[in-house]
Design a protein around this nucleic acid. Structure first.
Lengths: 219, 219
DNA sequence: ACTTCCACGATAACGGCGTTATAATCACGT
DNA sequence: ACGTGATTATAACGCCGTTATCGTGGAAGT
């Protein structure tokens, strides 16, 4: 090994990114089972010990990869020019999210199946703070102000629920439930998005009387 | 070891169930990381080799546990007396599903995060055949026939989408996104269910004109 | 009833993992 | 020029899933 750092600071940060990139590539291409510390070190040409001094352990390394994945997702969601129509914007974000997941299936499942407390981001702060979540909240708020969604429900909550819907559908799609029926999966997703935005247009204010389903049923 | 089987057949099947039960308990209580072949064999009082002759490997063992989990879920979903109101029945099933997931969080995440091709059930056949899925399809069909849901959308598809919604919300809840706000999580879930059933009541037939959001907005 | 045989299960071994302890090496201050 | 201290490469440890080996006990043949 002949990398003999010169400035004493810049080379390690390059090494960090190199490690994270290698680990991310393995995780995305071959899954979590094939991501080993020894292999990452070998592919980077360094000893295993380096990984432990830099990341503390495997947990720290995959945590960095997860962070990188979140950044990539946020970049993907914000690169499209936002449509002026808030509802169209919501659909656009949903499709962008699904496209991202389909492009990085293994990475997506590895990141979003991991328990939240495994990440270093505080759980409570993530919802509003995440740059990958902010565009959706913004679109929902604009839609609510325009009367296209229920104003009585907090925008953050509606955005969370929409995210849960999209995440659920994408998770099932990635785990192979709609395997081989790509066109159908696309149409179903579109249908789901529209149904949910429709459903939030005039949602009941308070969930009193959970079992009372035959309230006023307009027709 | 002195178990000296007598009938040559009944004892092994009891051993199988014993192994699956032990593995399921470990998986539910301590997660997938703590489930090892050696430990299962030790807790059962047998050698490790037994597990390999019975299940072929770890994959086979956890596959059996997954099957057991599916059966348990199906039993949970069918044990409540079905309400006559189809929409109320759908909500009931949703709540039962969520309750099951909250009662077995680690098990649920382990089973439903696993890729579908890892299971032994054929992907295409699972949707209609699964006994844990049939009650929902039935309720949706009844609701559609009663005019409470859109009849133009196949009932199986609507049930799939509802399942995706519930699965997505439950997944996020289990991974800690609503940590410490249990009452809120419950209310949000109720809201989500109602919004989705509302959204399916008069869904657009075809997704022509994606950006046309200001159709008829009754108020 | 005694011997033969063979399938089956307990034991031990193998390669690989995450992690850690140890030893060698290299830049650098004096 | 030379110790010195950090830093890295090497080896070791305990565990894992899996597999090969080998002793043994019950079934079959005479």
């Amino acid at each position: 090994m002949r990398t003999a750092r010169r400035a004493g600071e810049t080379v390690p940060v390059a090494l960090r990114e190199r490690f994270v990139e290698i680990a991310g590539r393995i995780l995305a291409n071959e899954g979590e089972g094939n991501l080993t510390m020894r292999r990452v070190a070998a592919e980077a040409g360094c000893s295993t010990m380096m990984l432990y001094t830099l990341f503390g352990g495997k947990e720290g390394l995959v945590s960095q990869v997860h962070g990188e994945c979140f950044r990539l997702l946020a970049h993907t969601l914000t690169e499209d020019k936002p449509k002026v129509d808030p509802l169209a914007r919501i659909l656009q974000l949903g499709h962008a999210y699904r496209t991202f997941a389909l492009q990085h299936p293994t990475l997506y499942l590895a990141v979003f199946s991991r328990s939240a407390e495994a990440s270093d981001v505080p759980v409570g702060a993530r919802r509003q703070a995440s740059p990958s979540f902010a565009p959706l909240v913004d679109a929902v708020r604009r839609a609510a102000e325009a009367g296209l969604l229920d104003e009585a429900i907090p925008s953050v909550m509606q955005a969370e629920l929409l995210w849960a819907v999209v995440h659920g559908y994408v998770s099932l799609e990635l785990t192979g439930y709609f395997a081989g029926e790509e066109a159908l999966a696309q149409r179903q997703f579109e249908l789901l998005l529209r149904a949910c935005t429709d459903g939030f247009r005039a949602a009941p204010k308070s969930p009193r009387g959970v079992a009372a389903t035959s309230k006023r049923r307009r027709r």
